[in-house]
Design a protein around this nucleic acid. Sequence first.
DNA 1: CGATTCTTTGAAAACAGTCAATCTGTGTGG
DNA 2: CCACACAGATTGACTGTTTTCAAAGAATCG
Lengths: 194, 194
Amino acid sequence: MYDELIAYINSQLSSELTEEEIALIKKTFKLKKLRKHQFLLQEGEVCQLAGFVVKGALKQYTVDENGKEDILGLYIENWWAGDRESYSKGTPSPFYIDAFEATEIMAVSAEDFTNYLSDQRFISELIRTLSERQSMQLLKRVYAAKTLSAEDRLADLEKNYPEFFQRFPQHIIASYLGMTKETLSRIRANSHRK
Amino acid sequence: MYDELIAYINSQLSSELTEEEIALIKKTFKLKKLRKHQFLLQEGEVCQLAGFVVKGALKQYTVDENGKEDILGLYIENWWAGDRESYSKGTPSPFYIDAFEATEIMAVSAEDFTNYLSDQRFISELIRTLSERQSMQLLKRVYAAKTLSAEDRLADLEKNYPEFFQRFPQHIIASYLGMTKETLSRIRANSHRK
DNA sequence: CGATTCTTTGAAAACAGTCAATCTGTGTGG
DNA sequence: CCACACAGATTGACTGTTTTCAAAGAATCG
């Protein structure tokens, strides 16, 4: 049950996890199952749980005054879900995160993280690696949103994350990319014609 | 000479720096002076130096095939400058970073960082805090670029980082916000009229 | 001063959004 | 098994914001 998580963490470290570290992971990470549409986090709450997606898919979003969702993140297997800032500082999160399909997460509570994990060497290395990658991905998204046309943003996503198109309907992808579903549909119609 | 840096780091930590840690900072951080227009990093290079801006201002940007700069980051006093991913992995950076005015940075080489700092407790805590903040800021910028109008993006920046308007000309701010200098100029003309 | 660099203004064009209607597929209950 | 509801995708006409291109005006620096 911990296989995917341990394999993933090993793949991100410069040296393999020790037996003690694996024991600590098994002690602190717990399987959390979410049904479709169930929330991992709601706006205004403190993020108590963060973890590794073993199976399933989630979306992170805000809701504006008209009730329209703005998708800020999509997470599938082998991604980490949660609001890191809220989780670590204990401040209310501005985001919703919910399961887009039945989902299983290997999750740690903020309390266990502080008590058992935060001083671990392998955790420091892991966080450093993941946060570098996340910052780079976010900066690419800033660049794309600022600078690229709707067509180029779509082409980028199709190239870099083709699996999203199997997992999420077009109107979700459109919102993630910062365009309307109509625009996304038209771009696809055009590129097919070529 | 190390006062600003040490005060800043202390302000970010849960407990004050010890004498040994301060000694280590003084050993590894060195003052780097940049003249106006001098590069801290150029596209294709590996980022060898990263550090804390004591005085001055820098811009981070890419250059497209037509030579047009796209500003991705602006840094002034009390910010950190450098490409973290390139710095830590030793991979070529896609960015330029140059001094927008005469600038002083307290910088560490990637080598010294690995040899002396990366295993330090206070560095782990510092990186964790800063990277959480950076991720949050970047996600806000993704949201702004995707969702807000040019007028709202400008209002946001005026509210949250008014100091930028004292330090950078309008065409640089416009590029940072993902609009043309003409649009920025027109928005200001309109809001003045009210 | 003369020369960049920065900012403003105008007119036309392009891109993407909005609103509204229709079409498609899927699954559910009678 | 059919009818219906529902979520998702497409299409058309129209609107509005922002860009592009061009020119000129203002400010700053050597």
